[in-house]
Design a protein around this nucleic acid. Structure first.
Lengths: 149, 149
DNA sequence: TATTGTTATACTCTATAACTATA
DNA sequence: TATAGTTATAGAGTATAACAATA
């Protein structure tokens, strides 16, 4: 969960250098570590923030929908929602429209946590974007979207 | 380890769309899942292949060096090397130059596994690169490197 | 003292499988 | 039958802490 102090991946990786997936993984790792450092004290992971954010934007959203938008398995979604519920950041409510669904809502504590998280995200994103021009950021996001869409 | 069948992350993610780190994580997840599908039967993870590849390129490399180049903790490197050693894909040898170090070497089975893995990587990379021009691939790798270097 | 490896431990993410309830 | 949620289980990656051996 906590950052790796010896974080430079070093130069010579030989044949691996030509592998795009390898660079995605390294970049993801670097972002993950910086995120963890930023969120020390707030005790929230990337996934937890994403779920909080999504529920905040869409009160009453179902678990399956959260999973779908975040590319997560139903079971994976469960564990994350469970943890958030245990900490009283969100609550489940049986949907009246469809009895199979759980409608998710942020609690007041959850709203407060999300607000704090968004501030942290801001500085984390500033760190990430600092190495790019605005046009490059746009291009990067667009290219990454081509991968995950 | 195995692929997520409902893999489309869906469109409307609201405010999260503007978060670069979010797109990196989604893209990483998509690549991870496709990788897993490609490597079913070979039973190797991204990290394991990276270590095999690195040791193949640099026979006698130390664990700490592998960890450094792959941006991994010492303990994390241990668990991966252990698994590879348990499957007899590589072996440890006390370094004669520095008694603290373990020199890593591929076994014949390890070399065979790496050769197969490289073939799989090829098709996996083809899938990944198919959505980009050569110039875009280059730009993407360059931008990702700016993040992880 | 610093570095490398090791062991123990813990947490998160990820997924499969089987089951329940509802549609 | 299909979908949403749930529970149990498992493997992989990540890291901290404490310790041993070597430099």
């Amino acid at each position: 969960m906590i950052g790796n102090k010896e974080n430079a991946p070093a130069a010579e990786i030989g044949g691996l250098h030509g592998v795009v997936g390898f660079h995605i993984r390294l970049a993801h790792g670097a972002v993950y570590r910086h995120f963890s450092e930023t969120f020390v004290g707030l005790e929230l992971t990337q996934k937890q923030v994403s779920v909080l954010w999504l529920v905040g934007d869409h009160p009453g959203i179902s678990q399956i929908e959260v999973g779908s938008r975040l590319a997560m398995d139903r079971a994976t979604t469960m564990t994350i929602v469970n943890r958030l519920q245990d900490r009283a950041f969100l609550r489940r409510e049986r949907s009246m429209r469809d009895g199979r669904m759980q409608a998710l809502f942020l609690t007041d504590a959850g709203k407060a946590a999300l607000a704090k998280a968004k501030t942290c995200i801001e500085s984390h994103e500033a760190w990430l974007k600092s190495r790019f021009t605005a046009a490059e950021v746009e291009k990067l996001v667009e290219m990454l979207s081509r991968i995950h869409d």
